[in-house]
Design a protein around this nucleic acid. Structure first.
Lengths: 105, 105
DNA sequence: TGAATACGTCGGAAATCTCCGACGCGTCAA
DNA sequence: TTGACGCGTCGGAGATTTCCGACGTATTCA
């Protein structure tokens, strides 16, 4: 039972696609399973990973469970990326300078 | 031999830390290995993953190999996140509205 | 009440990940 | 040239991931 890790949760393309779909609104598990060529257990287990990473929230409705997106933990990834955004904008600016220098010749 | 996937490359905390360290400048492999409590083969294999994801570039210097950060593929993650930034800013705005509504009472 | 539905979870199989020791190759220094 | 160093990669061990069929539970509907 590994701890909930947002980066690991995003490592799987199916889970990323689940999050994408949940943007448009909550979905039941069987409904999601039909979107992918996957059995229900597989989808259910992907949802468990997303749940442990607090990226989704479940809302029981009768015998179904609707899963809602909770994008807040994504800010951790965003923050991590910011440490590089600054760096790569510097790099891009430097590259641009070089290109301008070349063009001037 | 899985294909180079930026999200998978970021799933491992050691690889994320390697990228963090490379922000400050290029590093040789043994030098990196000393930072972690890891053998050199492990670090070398992490670097292979990062290389296949095009997140690092190697520059041979004599018998050493200095690894440079290439943050450009990170923009793929950034773009993916943008699909949610918009969503979660909407959510935050909606929450703010509710709070303002409450405060007005 | 009983049958059908929606779901979570438990083995278990197959694939993948992560790490290490060992080996080979190229480079440096004596 | 010889020995030591820095590195990549292979073979293999152990852990983890990903998927499925099977089972149990709760809910719905006839």
């Amino acid at each position: 039972m590994p701890e909930p890790d947002v980066f690991s949760a995003l490592a799987n393309p199916v889970r990323r696609e689940i999050l994408m779909q949940l943007r448009k609104g909550p979905r039941a598990v069987n409904d999601l399973a039909r979107s992918f060529e996957l059995g229900r257990p597989a989808v259910s287990e992907h949802l468990q990973v997303l749940r442990k990473a607090h990226l989704v929230r479940e809302e029981p409705r009768g015998r179904e469970r609707y899963y809602h997106l909770d994008p807040r933990p994504l800010s951790e990834v965003d923050d991590w990326l910011k440490a590089f955004t600054h760096y790569w904008k510097q790099r891009l600016a430097a590259l641009e300078d070089v290109l301008n220098e070349e063009a001037r010749k």
